[in-house]
Amino acid sequence: MYGKDDPRSSLATATAARPDSGAAIAAPQYFDLRATPVVRGQNVLLIHTEAKAGDDLDNGTLQGELATIVTGASPEFTVLTADGATLIDSPGLVVVPPGASRISVRGDGPLIRLVEAGEPHWGDKAANAADYAEDHPRVALLERWPEPVGEQGVRFYPLSEVPEDPQRFGRIFRTRSFMVNFLPEQHGPRDPRRLSPHSHDDFEQLSLAVQGEYVHHIRTPWLPDSTVWREDEHVRTGSPSVTVIPPPTVHTSAASDPGVNQLIDIFSPPRADFSAKPGWVLNADDYPMP
């Protein structure tokens, strides 16, 4: 599982018993976002846009919140809603309330938007929509967490206000439907003697590579039916890419580029185990737990 110096080693789920449901285990999925810019998991849909100055991106009229991941390579942009305009000019997470909204782009670079997979405006646009024609039985369905505290409006959580802390696991923000973890930049390849293979009981993980290159090591546990066993996978992906990791596969990811590598992990609904750790979720005062 985790090394003793890994903050995740103290999670309740790190040592919990893991009953098996007996249901089929879905296959991992790997997407080059330059070729397939709209993909989904069971509960979340990801839209990757190589934006250009002057672009006007229509988010549609959404039933749930929109989250936009802003990286160091992203351009400045303005979020336009019925309540006004909000300028975004640095890396972080932007959360837009339900309803109609647009993004007016002021430069060139990538933008990553997250919406609930059931949104009518987006649901059939995912390249892998057919893989979710039926719900995956091992993945818990989305139930939105409580309403945010205070007045409704666009919320921006800049990374510059929350320095990295080795006592936390990354920099984590949540919304009613999503959890986004900005993991630290990895300079050079990961030490192959210090990987962290682990599994999740009932939620998918979307690992978004925004810099560098990764090898995703994924092992599907054996079920009694040997005809559905899979070989271990060791898949190299560049950036931008996203890997959909189904439960309860055993997985770990290793940075492999000699330069800078960075992953951003996405979960839907938010993870209860991360949320239970004091200080880990940086906007917990805005988004209470159930």
Results as ranks from 00 to 15, higher is better:
I112R: 08
T243F: 03
F178M: 01
L57H: 09
R230Q: 15
L142F: 11
P270I: 03
E65C: 04
G64K: 13
A16V: 09
R176L: 08
G123D: 11
G212T: 07
T68L: 15
Q167W: 06
E151S: 14
A27L: 11
V260A: 12
E161Y: 02
A85Y: 06
L114Y: 09
R219L: 14
I112H: 13
S104C: 06
D273A: 14
I245K: 01
S104N: 13
E185L: 12
T36I: 02
Y132F: 15
L208C: 05
P240C: 12
T36V: 05
E50S: 10
R102T: 11
D5H: 04
G84P: 10
K52A: 12
G153W: 10
E65W: 11
S241R: 15
S275K: 00
V38H: 01
T71W: 01
D232C: 07
L57I: 15
H187R: 15
L142H: 10
L62Y: 00
Y214K: 04
G3Q: 04
A16M: 11
G153D: 04
V210T: 15
Q205I: 12
G188C: 07
I245Q: 00
Q29L: 14
A117S: 15
T227H: 09
K125P: 00
V115M: 08
R18S: 13
A16N: 07
K125T: 14
V39H: 00
F267C: 02
A272R: 07
H217P: 00
P269Y: 09
P224V: 08
A126N: 02
G60W: 11
I264Q: 03
T252H: 03
F77V: 01
P148R: 10
E116T: 14
R174Y: 00
H217D: 12
E76I: 00
L114R: 03
T15W: 06
E116I: 10
A209E: 03
D257Y: 15
A23M: 10
S101K: 09
D191Y: 04
T220E: 02
P163H: 02
G54T: 02
V215F: 05
D32A: 07
D32S: 08
E134I: 09
P290W: 04
P148V: 09
A133S: 08
V149Q: 14
V79P: 01
E164P: 04
R194C: 06
A140F: 01
G188Q: 06
R174C: 10
T13H: 03
E204M: 05
S241K: 15
D201R: 14
P224M: 07
R155W: 09
A27V: 13
G109K: 11
L208V: 04
V115W: 11
A35C: 04
V260L: 11
G279F: 12
G238F: 13
V210I: 15
R171Q: 12
D202R: 14
P28A: 12
Q262Y: 05
E76T: 09
V154S: 03
A73N: 10
P19R: 10
N59F: 14
V96N: 03
